[in-house]
Write a protein that binds this DNA or RNA. Sequence first.
DNA 1: AACCTCGGTCGGCATTGTCGAACGGCAGTC
DNA 2: GACTGCCGTTCGACAATGCCGACCGAGGTT
Lengths: 255, 255
Amino acid sequence: MAGPVQSIERAAAILRLLAGGSRRLGLGEVASSLGLAKGTAHGILRTLQHVDFVEQDPATGKYQLGAALLHLGTSYLDVNELRSRSINWADALAARSGEAVRLGTPLEGRVLVIHHVFRPDDTLQTLDVGALLPLHASSLGKVLLAFGATPVDPLLEDEPEAYTRHTLVHPEQLNRALGEIREFGWGAEVQEMSMGEAGIAAPIRGQGGLVVGAIGVSGAVERICDTKGRPQPALITVLREAARAISRDLGAARW
Amino acid sequence: MAGPVQSIERAAAILRLLAGGSRRLGLGEVASSLGLAKGTAHGILRTLQHVDFVEQDPATGKYQLGAALLHLGTSYLDVNELRSRSINWADALAARSGEAVRLGTPLEGRVLVIHHVFRPDDTLQTLDVGALLPLHASSLGKVLLAFGATPVDPLLEDEPEAYTRHTLVHPEQLNRALGEIREFGWGAEVQEMSMGEAGIAAPIRGQGGLVVGAIGVSGAVERICDTKGRPQPALITVLREAARAISRDLGAARW
DNA sequence: AACCTCGGTCGGCATTGTCGAACGGCAGTC
DNA sequence: GACTGCCGTTCGACAATGCCGACCGAGGTT
């Protein structure tokens, strides 16, 4: 038995499917999306429902994610070492920079936000811990790509989505950008995901120097960048100091 | 095949086990805790790891929850109708009451917090969305029990944990309290979970009038209660108004 | 250096999940 | 109001599948 357990893989695929489509899904949709017989999909869904990973709308019979997942997700945050060691540094970085701070780690070809400190003013902001950002259009993602925390190949093969006219979509552009990130030790994103917004990020290394995540600050482009459209040197300095401090906490010898 | 899928149930049990023990668990511990052969547990863990539901510490070989669960958990929040319809009312309630507001729904003999609005001052508070509260010692839990949103039996059979000297642990006490909650339409908890803290809660009803959740405000006992140790009538009024408004939004005819 | 513990692997067996067809309820339609 | 899709659910037979328990090798400990 070298292979993975089939039914569990299928269950996970169903959960991801339900997480992706933001609306409730019917049994038929689930079965055909995954190429399963209706009976099979029903058995798995029934089990997932039984363990509260999935809920069923009693009226329509359609399925959606269940409450138990919320608790598991927050439990993950509790045990995540990268996050727990970063919290204090992230708070300090937000205070020093005056901007929102995010921590990301690679997940399934995207960046999972595992910590988020609001910009220290009283404006209304939404917590996006648990959100997935694109690799090629976020500063966190570009840093993770540059330092090999997640494979680049899929992005080079078929052209990724362009969110704005500044998004790097050509393999050549992306490769050059990643090279520069490797060279300087930090990465930026200026209006590549959303016009008017920019961010910079730096890698976080674990034991052995492997890059396990990234930390970044982001905000309005006129605050992050100088008049020439380049990230403020002062911000880069405090960001890199925070990244180094966290890496040290995690056991990365010296970087 | 009427029964649930065995391997998926086991996988879910492993995930819950990992979520419970806050430290990383070894293969042997997992296997023996669930009464499985090591090989079996390993196969399931390998699969869970493959779908990012579980991570393995490369150094020690021990297992912990994986990143994909965080995204699934927040995706649950996105589709949860009770939560999305409550957010505005919860904000307003926090503003009117000046206290922290929480929304809960039953999960596995506990109360799952699905929304949390901080007390509207600038003190440091930790977000406990995703946390599990006890049924018998929280205002949210007592309301859910009183209105049949979750079975009472397990608490009456063996005596639940006493967090403080005010915690209701005797079946008789609990039953009387639940009866009063049913009668008045709201419930309170005064220093039953933590000394100096109190909370009040009211039920939220969905279509058909079934209680699907509860909303509550909580804070220091001297702000929640009057000098006689009884909840402030003004707070109860605004709380019940919010609960009724949300119930109406959810399609409960009139309550 | 021998021991012990722990995570991982392997092969045989039968338990287990899968499949496809048939059922029953619901809603929209003619 | 009968008809007709559609959809979630049930059922039984088959064999593929995952389960078990013994075995392996590495790391740490005594």
